[in-house]
């Protein structure tokens, strides 16, 4: 089972709640894993502090031109819709950062002058904290496309009964890639005008790709009631409201934190777990 934790806006407490959830499940004897798909700014292991036992490098294929074979016909340039291979001075020039690795140029070249070579896009580390599995991606700095790396991260810890996925904020291709195939998405929103606007956008995205979701309202006492009203009007399930806590804020700041957070808000987490897993996983909800 895949449970994504996502949010339209950054800094809403996504990573915290994902970690708390995965930790709770694992404490209750569920074979759980946490995947960090926020590969641009991966933060899960700053808090989890899992022992890392392996790091894999991830590559994506990009073209490389054998100039001796190339006759300069320009078919590759015509093929590429991303302007990643352009003819300069009669010969193709590859711009690897623009390349989407579609393989078009390589297939279309009549002279078989194009080969595909691997380009490093980032790494994935894997580790263990107690019984909780962890895998997290880290995008290479300067690499624009995160989605291919996210796809790879999602190949990890497949044997876990529940995988909690910490998604990147927003609704772009990387956010979509992260939530794709999830059984349920927990959206984290703040009750502010920005929070509402960004929640509406991500709800629209999830409805479009037809994934079920509910909302956790974090720092529930900092703003106004518009987010609640929206959820009521749109029949969006509110799974829990977690108030702002200055203690949590300073524990978060120093990186020592999610255990205390779980304790402080155990009632809220109980309600999240009950709504998300009830009837789906034995032994997770206390009164089952």
């Amino acid at each position: 089972m895949n449970i994504s934790v996502a949010s339209g806006k950054g800094g809403t407490g996504k990573t915290t709640i994902a970690l708390a959830l995965a930790t709770l499940l694992s404490q209750r004897g569920i074979h759980a894993a946490i995947l960090d798909c926020d590969v641009e700014e991966p933060n899960v292991n700053l808090f989890l502090k899992a022992d890392i036992h392996s790091v894999d490098t991830v590559y994506t294929p990009v073209p490389s031109v054998d100039e001796a074979r190339c006759n300069g016909c320009g078919k590759c340039e015509q093929m590429c819709r991303f302007s990643a291979i352009v003819i300069v001075g009669g010969k193709p020039l590859v711009l690897p950062d623009m390349c989407h690795s579609c393989g078009g140029c390589y297939r279309v070249c009549p002279e078989k002058a194009i080969q595909e070579i691997p380009k490093e896009i980032g790494g994935i580390e894997e580790g263990l904290k107690g019984n909780l599995h962890y895998a997290g991606g880290r995008l290479r700095i300067g690499e624009p496309m995160a989605a291919p790396l996210i796809k790879e991260v999602k190949q990890y810890a497949c044997d876990a009964d529940v995988r909690v996925i910490d998604c990147p904020p927003g609704t772009s291709c990387s956010a979509i890639e992260s939530v794709r195939g999830s059984d349920y998405v927990i959206l984290i929103a703040e009750p502010t005008p920005f929070g509402l606007n960004d929640l509406q956008i991500i709800v629209g995205m999830l409805r479009q790709i037809e994934v079920g979701f509910g909302v956790v309202i974090n720092k529930s006492d900092i703003g106004d009631d518009r987010v609640y009203r929206y959820c009521r009007e749109e029949a969006v399930a509110v799974l829990a409201s977690i108030p702002y806590s200055p203690e949590s804020a300073s524990e978060y700041a120093s990186g020592f934190y999610h255990e205390a957070f779980i304790e402080r808000f155990s009632a809220e987490f109980y309600s999240i777990i009950t709504s998300v897993f009830s009837g789906k996983l034995k032994g997770v909800c206390r009164n089952e």
Partner: peptide
């Protein structure tokens, strides 16, 4: 700008 380090930020 946008958060992160990926394509919209670049």
């Amino acid at each position: 700008g946008s958060p992160g380090i990926g394509c919209p930020v670049i």
